[in-house]
């Protein structure tokens, strides 16, 4: 499938779903969160599934984006035009530093995962202790009763849906283009056999860093969107290890060998868990169901739903 076709198909599906749910605020909200988690999972999997770098600290980058927006607007009244690039810049810089440190010492597999987890946890506790960032109570962003497009404040939900759809489609587009270029080939080669790839002229550290920084930048973009949409950030929702784990869950369930696999995982699990949460009498019932699903799928369907589907399609 050419990259153009993948992007067109994803766009078409998104538009159809958007058209179907746009009349209903509740369903539109589910759609927006599905796109949000879908984008995060796709960019997380660029590292994990396509380059072989499992990060358990991606919430750190989402948090940088979200807190940049929340702090910028509540303390200084800055526009998203300032805070979004600021959040992304901080995240890319953080990924650069963390990546330089980790790759220099050759951390991989479990060690890279746990190192990133530790960086994420440090950020979590530090923000929880910082007065100007609202400590563990979080920050409520100023909301006015009228729409302020310049501050991305809308009463209606559809403008948010359009923004996150654009981010998602952009991510898939950039990802698909990269996968067909030298970068994508190098990433997959590094995932499989770093030593062999290096012997064939691949600058392992540079290409891993590139992947990490891109993934972090997109995560921060999503975080910035989240802050503007929800108008409230706290450490648990945007910096917690649970958020990092969610990205892993959607990727495993959807399929890690394909760029758009994690999107399938999010599209199945996000609406499912929101509906289950809202309509089931059992608190935490949604997580029980998808924890079981995760463990079972990880063991029995290692290629994920999308991977399974594609392999069935080809044979």
């Amino acid at each position: 499938m050419s990259s153009f076709r993948t992007v067109t198909m994803v766009t078409a599906v998104l538009l159809v779903v958007f058209a179907a749910v746009s009349g209903n605020r509740y369903y539109l909200d589910i759609f927006i969160f599905t796109c949000f988690y879908g984008t995060l999972a796709v960019c997380w999997n660029m590292m994990a599934g396509l380059t072989g770098l499992m990060s358990l600290g991606h919430a750190l980058f989402v948090g940088l984006g979200a807190y940049s927006v929340a702090w910028g607007v509540s303390v200084h009244g800055w526009s998203p035009l300032v805070t979004w690039p600021m959040g992304m810049g901080l995240a890319v810089a953080a990924a650069f530093v963390i990546g330089m440190l980790c790759f220099r010492y050759g951390l991989r597999g479990y060690f890279f995962a746990i190192a990133t987890l530790a960086f994420g946890e440090v950020a979590f506790f530090m923000v929880s202790a910082t007065e100007t960032l609202g400590r563990s109570d979080g920050m409520i962003m100023p909301i006015s009763s009228t729409d302020i497009p310049g501050q991305l404040q809308f009463f209606e939900k559809w403008p948010y849906a359009l923004i996150i759809m654009t981010i998602l489609i952009g991510t898939i587009g950039v990802g698909e283009a990269l996968m067909r270029s030298r970068t994508g080939y190098y990433w997959r080669a590094l995932r499989d056999n770093e030593q062999a790839a290096e012997a064939l002229g691949v600058n392992a550290r540079a290409f891993k860093l590139r992947c990490f920084m891109l993934s972090a930048g997109i995560s921060a973009l999503c975080g910035a969107f989240y802050a503007n949409y929800v108008a409230f950030v706290d450490p648990r929702s945007v910096l917690g290890v649970e958020l990092s784990i969610q990205m892993l869950v959607y990727s495993i369930v959807g399929g890690m060998s394909l760029l758009w696999g994690p999107l399938v995982g999010a599209a199945v699990l996000v609406p499912f868990s929101i509906l289950l949460r809202d309509y089931s009498a059992m608190p935490g019932g949604d997580i029980v169901v998808y924890a079981v699903l995760l463990a079972v799928l990880a063991l029995l369907l290692p290629q994920g739903i999308a991977g399974w589907f594609v392999s069935k399609w080809r044979t």
Partner: peptide
């Protein structure tokens, strides 16, 4: 996947 299983 091992990680995912035990996390699950």
């Amino acid at each position: 996947n091992q990680m995912a299983v035990t996390l699950g």
